[in-house]
Amino acid sequence: MEKWFNVGKIVNTQGIKGEVRVVSKTDFPEKRYKAGNVLYLFMPNSKTPVELTVKSHRTHKNFELLTFEGYNNINEVEKFKEGILKVPESQLDELEEDEFYYHEIIGCLVATTKGEEIGKVTEILSPGANDVWVVKGKGGKENLIPYIHDVVKKVDVKEKVIIIDPMEGLLS
């Protein structure tokens, strides 16, 4: 059975020419939303996904704005609201060394080079220069770990373990 990965959620329409607003959940928006790419729309009350081919993509504020081939006005895309855009596992690309998909990192156990367990990665933030991993420890305490070579020493996605060497003051 094919595994599916979320790339975004259609939250609204934009204008009258069939453009939709997407809250992106993908690690690589420039690849996923490229014209000609195929995305699959899963609607809450439907078992069969709708295959959509990206016609255009632009970013506006915190949204990705997409149009799809064959859908040229607001009336045709209105029904897509609340739908989840996904790609099958077979569409995932091979990554460079030290690059990871979000789904590979979320859930990993984080420990220090000294063996102290910090917690599990629950979320990934992309504020700018580098990603920041939100690590929730025992008691619900959260630590923000920057994904930089000075801090993250080893990532083993098969074993779901990340080893870090925290800088002074990084861990609360």
Rank of each mutant, 00 (worst) to 15 (best):
residue 2 E to M: 12
residue 4 W to H: 05
residue 6 N to E: 14
residue 8 G to T: 12
residue 8 G to N: 02
residue 8 G to I: 07
residue 10 I to Q: 04
residue 10 I to M: 05
residue 11 V to S: 11
residue 12 N to W: 08
residue 13 T to V: 15
residue 14 Q to Y: 15
residue 20 V to G: 12
residue 22 V to C: 10
residue 22 V to P: 06
residue 23 V to N: 13
residue 24 S to T: 15
residue 24 S to W: 06
residue 25 K to Q: 14
residue 25 K to Y: 14
residue 27 D to Q: 04
residue 27 D to G: 15
residue 29 P to T: 09
residue 30 E to R: 01
residue 30 E to G: 00
residue 33 Y to M: 08
residue 34 K to S: 11
residue 34 K to G: 00
residue 34 K to R: 10
residue 35 A to K: 15
residue 36 G to D: 08
residue 37 N to H: 03
residue 41 L to S: 00
residue 41 L to K: 01
residue 41 L to M: 03
residue 42 F to H: 05
residue 45 N to W: 05
residue 45 N to T: 11
residue 45 N to E: 13
residue 46 S to I: 04
residue 47 K to G: 07
residue 48 T to M: 06
residue 49 P to F: 11
residue 51 E to S: 13
residue 52 L to V: 06
residue 52 L to K: 01
residue 56 S to L: 06
residue 57 H to L: 10
residue 58 R to Q: 07
residue 58 R to Y: 09
residue 59 T to K: 13
residue 61 K to H: 07
residue 63 F to R: 07
residue 63 F to H: 14
residue 65 L to Q: 05
residue 66 L to Y: 01
residue 68 F to P: 02
residue 69 E to V: 14
residue 74 I to K: 11
residue 75 N to P: 01
residue 76 E to V: 01
residue 77 V to D: 04
residue 78 E to C: 02
residue 78 E to A: 09
residue 80 F to D: 12
residue 80 F to C: 10
residue 81 K to I: 14
residue 83 G to M: 12
residue 84 I to H: 03
residue 86 K to S: 06
residue 86 K to R: 11
residue 86 K to Q: 14
residue 87 V to T: 09
residue 89 E to K: 08
residue 90 S to M: 03
residue 91 Q to E: 12
residue 92 L to D: 11
residue 92 L to P: 07
residue 92 L to W: 07
residue 94 E to H: 08
residue 96 E to N: 13
residue 96 E to I: 02
residue 96 E to Y: 10
residue 97 E to W: 02
residue 98 D to V: 04
residue 99 E to M: 10
residue 99 E to F: 07
residue 101 Y to A: 13
residue 104 E to H: 05
residue 105 I to K: 11
residue 105 I to H: 11
residue 106 I to H: 06
residue 107 G to H: 03
residue 107 G to W: 03
residue 109 L to W: 08
residue 110 V to D: 06
residue 110 V to A: 04
residue 113 T to L: 13
residue 114 K to N: 14
residue 114 K to F: 08
residue 115 G to H: 08
residue 115 G to I: 07
residue 116 E to A: 10
residue 117 E to A: 13
residue 119 G to L: 04
residue 122 T to V: 14
residue 123 E to D: 08
residue 124 I to Y: 01
residue 124 I to R: 05
residue 126 S to T: 11
residue 128 G to T: 03
residue 130 N to Q: 08
residue 130 N to R: 10
residue 131 D to W: 02
residue 135 V to I: 11
residue 139 G to L: 01
residue 139 G to I: 02
residue 141 K to F: 12
residue 142 E to N: 10
residue 142 E to M: 06
residue 142 E to W: 00
residue 144 L to I: 04
residue 144 L to F: 14
residue 148 I to N: 01
residue 152 V to P: 00
residue 152 V to E: 00
residue 153 K to C: 08
residue 155 V to T: 06
residue 157 V to P: 09
residue 158 K to V: 14
residue 158 K to I: 12
residue 159 E to Q: 13
residue 160 K to P: 03
residue 161 V to G: 00
residue 161 V to P: 00
residue 164 I to E: 03
residue 167 M to G: 08
residue 171 L to K: 05
residue 172 S to M: 04
